[in-house]
Write a protein that binds this DNA or RNA. Structure first.
Lengths: 108, 108
DNA sequence: TATATATGCAACTTTTGGGTTGCGCAATAT
DNA sequence: ATATTGCGCAACCCAAAAGTTGCATATATA
């Protein structure tokens, strides 16, 4: 059983799938046309994404539309928050340096 | 050659390393004490993280202090931004309701 | 009803990744 | 000067993952 969302987005093909499906729900076949691999390979990627709930299904006859689940993706954002302050701090430090450099010449 | 930041954060041990080092720069040995693996295993994780520039080195004698590079982590945040609107949008919730209605009727 | 289409699943192969062991090298300590 | 410490690197092993092929099943169409 696979459920690690970080592992899920590690693969570049899966990230591309997410980008496509975030724009528009798609079937596996429609999706596979965007890639250079077999339908089954794409299907396996879909399974990984669905297992960790980044995708949800919607069956319509014999077709299955996969939809993007943004709330799951938000978990990544939540994990990132603990680091956010670090790059915001660095920005302000950099700002300070640039201001000091600029103050030798002129202001704007 | 490994340089994929998404692949780098896929491993739980590496994510733990990032959390530790974000708080305080550390040497490989100090780091390894926090985990149940060998120093070499941790060292390999460090290499992965350093290769994709999530960590930077600072040599001090025979010790090497690894520092967190928040600007690189910010790239993940940047990638996430394309999805942010999906979970922030109120329409995202509306979509979900509509999709549930559709799947109950099983038509399109 | 017979056939084509959309999909999932299981078996297999190949590649990748994580871990361990063993080594070499440079910096420090005795 | 010799021993110890901190570290990286390479070789190897094993498990997991990605891709392919071949099926089975359900739905649509002729």
């Amino acid at each position: 059983m696979k459920a690690d969302i970080f592992q899920a987005i590690a693969d570049p093909t899966r990230r591309a799938i997410l980008v496509l499906i975030a724009t528009q729900a798609m079937t596996p076949n429609a999706l596979a046309e965007h890639f250079d691999t077999t339908r089954q390979a794409v299907s396996k990627h879909i399974k990984v994404l669905a297992d960790c709930e980044l995708l949800t299904q919607n069956k319509a006859g014999r077709e299955i539309y996969y939809h993007f689940n943004p709330m799951k993706m938000k978990e990544i954002d939540h994990w990132l928050e603990q680091f956010k302050k670090h790059w915001e701090d660095r920005f302000s430090q950099l700002d300070k340096v640039l201001l000091n450099l600029n103050s030798n010449k002129n202001e704007n």
